[in-house]
Nucleic acid binder design. Structure first.
Lengths: 209, 209
DNA sequence: CTTATATTGTTATATCATTCACATAATAGT
DNA sequence: ACTATTATGTGAATGATATAACAATATAAG
């Protein structure tokens, strides 16, 4: 039974399913039941079936799921075939690390450019991605499709910059600054990577184990 | 009423409270009510009081919470004053970015060393942190206190390396590889930063907004 | 000193998420 | 073809989390 409103809990499990199914594909596994998928992932079979049922009926009774087909479906749900366009703002150590190591294309994103204030990097390319001056940012965004902006800038300027970008039409932010970016526009989506929060929860858990 | 078992949902909010309270401190705010804290953070006052009540009674009726005191309490709960020791395994782009930019000491961690296989970095220091050869890892861990290992290695070797480290007594992992590390020992804690999962949920949300 | 106001900690309620249980249907073996 | 087995999708039951409601108590004002 296709659902209208999918809960955040379900959405956050989808990438893990996708990851596991990609792995199964690579291992040459053709079919899998919710039960064995659950065993591999440490999730109940029930939850897996409930999760999938939010989006359609991908399995077959007595058989299970075809791995490759299911992977394609979930990839489709996640939008990996949407070819989203992305630019990065801030080409510091972290930005460079992402440009060098993160497989953006596997998740359906194309990195079209990066922006920075430092003359040392402006005009260069990082792993094939051209680095532009911050002054060129407005014009660039007006003239190109930019779905997502990766924010790897100092947090002091992050919120005001985000506000400005929202005005220019950006509707997705992958935020690495240590603040909670937000917008009054509910159509603008923010996804945060809060390193410090993550390490602090680990700190709590090793202290209270 | 102090609780015995704190839910994961509560724990994951603690760092955000800590962050907000640090900010309030810096802004010179002395006292705050659950209501106004909630407004600033987009959380209900009820939830804030519930969350805090898991750990004790930090407020005062008719007054609210003393910002500095509350910040100290939550920091204490999170273990920022425990002075945990940490080593990093894998000094690639990401590892270097973390060593240069991440304020480990703010979260109560000391980075004592890093390990890598590349002769190009072994023997050097990155932002004051000495880089050792992987061959020295076992001895090092046996002879020093190591609470947490930061895993920024290729995922192919991640799980076997984690298993080995658990045997040597490591009980905390900050995992940046794109796999689900695990251990049969429930006292070993894993905290994952899955970049790809994060970006994929963003992909879903901008596609379905 | 008294009263009105503010705000907590906690119990009760409502909402949301996960697991169970089962009818239904496909597969595999004889 | 028939039967036993496997497994799905889903409605109901349970469990977890978040919100609301309120008694208790401190502050602040007159």
């Amino acid at each position: 039974m296709k659902k209208e409103n999918i809960s955040d809990a379900v959405i956050r499990r989808l990438p893990r399913y996708y990851r596991q199914l990609t792995d199964l594909c690579n291992r040459g596994v053709v079919r899998i039941s919710s039960h064995s998928l659950g065993q591999e992932m440490n999730i109940t079979a029930s939850q897996i079936r409930q999760d999938f049922s939010c989006f359609g009926e991908f399995g077959q009774q007595g058989y299970g799921y075809n791995v490759e087909e299911l992977r394609t479906e979930i990839g489709h749900i996640l939008g990996v075939d949407n070819h989203h366009h992305l630019v990065m703002i801030g080409v510091g150590n972290l930005g460079r690390a992402l440009l060098h190591n993160f497989p953006f294309s596997d998740t359906g994103f194309t990195v079209d450019g990066a922006f920075d204030i430092s003359p040392a990097v402006i005009g260069s390319t990082v792993n094939g991605v051209p680095v532009y001056s911050m002054e060129e940012l407005d014009t660039y965004i007006r003239e190109h499709t930019v779905d997502v902006v990766v924010m790897t800038v100092p947090q002091s300027v992050a919120q005001s910059m985000a506000d400005h970008l929202v005005e220019l039409g950006v509707h997705g932010f992958w935020n690495f600054t240590n603040i909670e970016l937000s917008s009054v526009n509910p159509n603008v989506k923010f996804e945060n990577i809060h390193f410090a929060d993550s390490l602090l929860t680990l700190s709590y858990r090793i202290a209270n184990r």
